[in-house]
Design a protein around this nucleic acid. Structure first.
Length: 478
RNA sequence: GGCGGCAUGGCCAAGUGGUAAGGCAGGAGCCUGCAAAGCUCUUACCCCCAGUUCGAAUCUGGGUGCCGCCUCCA
């Protein structure tokens, strides 16, 4: 039984979807005006794993992640770069998408753009004005916070303290400091509306897209913890006032990536971009690094942590690849149900306890390696099948990339001159076999100098030799 | 100031009141010509004080330290 920490109640709750067997999941997507950083990676990896796990449990999941492509920051960037706001949005959306792909995040089922849903936003605003939950003021539309008594429930903020802490803007068009914009007058870049040309406020975008693309009531709404106030608080107010039903059943929020104990963020400027981090560490390492911590806890970024993650990934991928070649990939058991899969579910059912889930993978790697050492193929097959299943649900891809004949030949050409026994015209595989044969002959002759030289040359081009007990030497990429 | 969270071995980290998962790093050993990979063994009275309890890392109260939200932010 899946249990989730609901930010709204502040408690762990049993997960029961509105409609049995179906889950609607809305995650606040990016505002596309700059390169995504590790904080975004954390957020979207977290919810990617949630999505994968819900599907693994057999739910029919509809995952919707919006794209905010109309925003002050996009306009500012457009100004700065001397291109149109649309081009800014397109450029950074493409970068974002590429980053998500590189991180092995599944594509959401729906990815609505704010600019394509302006009509729905206007419709909600009209409804809210009708309700007197909102009002027009000189081309702007504001939400009347006092009309929604539950305001502050999600963020647990007493409304009086919010008033006290609110910034008082000069020449405000608002009735009350707490009121927030649903629509902003913008004659230059705006869209036509009953209130003149303008742009939607950020909060209304998500309310509109969630309602239009999912339903007035969604099962899960997730995002970074920094969105709790005011973004999600405002979404609740708007949606519930407009729809007359509860907006979200389970509010889920992920913690931050920190650097020197401080939140990594655009405004602090202490961020590492996803592309930047991928230059030094691979996808699995980043995912592993993120998943070692529970999703609600902060994750401290530093090289030691990434190195540790990288070493952990290496251990798992060694086990996976060694075991796959031992049992034969084609023999893997589909949909295996084992004791370890049970432990994995138990872990993930506890509010996505990924840290425990990783421990199950290490346990399987260890058991699998042992089974292989003992030459127990049946056991090994069971363990690797379970391990592969878990890896898939967590979004890992541990399998070594197959190198093509051409790529191998290209590599070998670099070192082939070192060996006089090689005929350059042979195929890459033949050359590899020749090299290994030559080294094994040297080993038999106890000519360690030659044997080591061959191994070192191969190491230079990223090929590692592994001698096994039965006298067979295999090669693989580093 | 208001609200919320966190403090577990050298580092990261899980932990549902009964005597501390896992990973990384380190050490010892096995295997190996040497490696690589793998296997085995190995390092904790859980920030401090008080309380509840037969029993607390886990509950309560009080400290101390760190962080987040309260403004755009994943």
């Amino acid at each position: 039984m899946l249990k989730l920490f609901n930010s709204y109640s502040g408690e762990i709750e049993e997960f029961k979807p509105i409609e049995p067997g179906k889950v609607s999941m809305y995650v606040c997507g990016p505002t596309v005006y700059d390169n995504p950083h590790l904080g975004h990676a954390r957020c979207y990896i977290t919810w990617d794993v949630a999505y994968r796990y819900l599907k693994f449990l057999g739910y029919d999941v509809t995952y919707c992640r919006n794209v905010t492509d109309v925003d002050d920051k996009i306009l500012a960037k457009a100004e700065k770069e001397g291109i149109s706001p649309d081009d800014v949005a397109k450029k950074y959306y493409d970068i974002f998408t590429e980053s998500m792909n590189k991180l092995n995040n599944l594509k959401p089922d729906l990815e609505p753009f704010a600019t394509k849903n302006i009509g729905e936003m206007i419709a909600i605003n009209k409804k809210l004005i009708e309700n007197e939950c909102a009002y027009e003021s000189d081309g702007d539309v504001y939400f009347r916070v006092k009309k929604f008594p539950k305001y502050g429930q999600l963020s647990k903020q007493p409304i009086d303290d919010l008033v006290a802490g609110a910034r008082v803007e000069a020449s405000s068009k608002k009735e009350d400091v707490l009121d927030f914009a649903l629509w902003k007058k913008d004659e230059k870049h705006g869209y036509p509306s009953p209130w003149g040309n303008g742009r939607p406020g950020w909060h209304i975008e998500c309310s509109a897209m969630a309602r239009k693309h999912l339903a007035p009531q969604v099962d899960i709404h997730a995002g970074g913890a920094d969105l709790i106030f005011p973004h999600h608080e405002n979404e609740i107010a708007q949606s519930e006032c407009a729809n007359g039903t509860q907006f979200v059943k389970y509010w889920l929020h992920n913690g931050f990536v920190t650097i020197n104990k401080e939140k990594m963020s655009k405004s602090l400027g202490n961020f590492v971009t996803i592309d930047g981090i991928l230059e030094n560490y691979d996808t699995n390492t980043i995912r592993f690094f993120i998943l070692t911590n529970h999703y609600r806890m902060p994750v401290e970024f530093n090289d030691e942590a990434l190195e540790a993650a990288s070493a952990g990934v290496k251990r798992l991928s060694n086990a996976v690849n060694n075991l796959l070649s031992y049992v034969g990939k084609e023999n893997l058991i589909e949909n295996i149900d084992s004791e370890e899969i049970g432990q994995f579910k138990e872990a993930m059912d506890e509010d996505f306890n990924s840290s425990k889930a990783l421990a199950v993978m290490f346990d399987l790697a260890n058991k699998g390696n042992k089974a292989k050492d003992e030459n127990n193929k049946d056991s090994a097959l069971k363990y690797i099948s379970s391990l592969m299943t878990i890896a898939r649900v967590l979004g890992f891809d541990f399998e070594k990339i197959e190198i093509s004949e051409e790529q191998l030949k290209e590599k070998l050409d670099i070192i082939v001159g070192e060996f006089d026994f090689i005929d350059k015209n042979q195929s890459a595989i033949e050359i590899m076999n020749k090299i290994i044969e030559a080294r094994n002959k040297a080993r038999t002759d106890k000519d360690w100098t030659t044997a080591d030289k061959i191994r070192n040359e191969l190491d230079k081009i990223g090929i590692v030799l592994k001698d096994s007990k039965d006298g067979i030497t295999i090669w693989e990429l580093k």
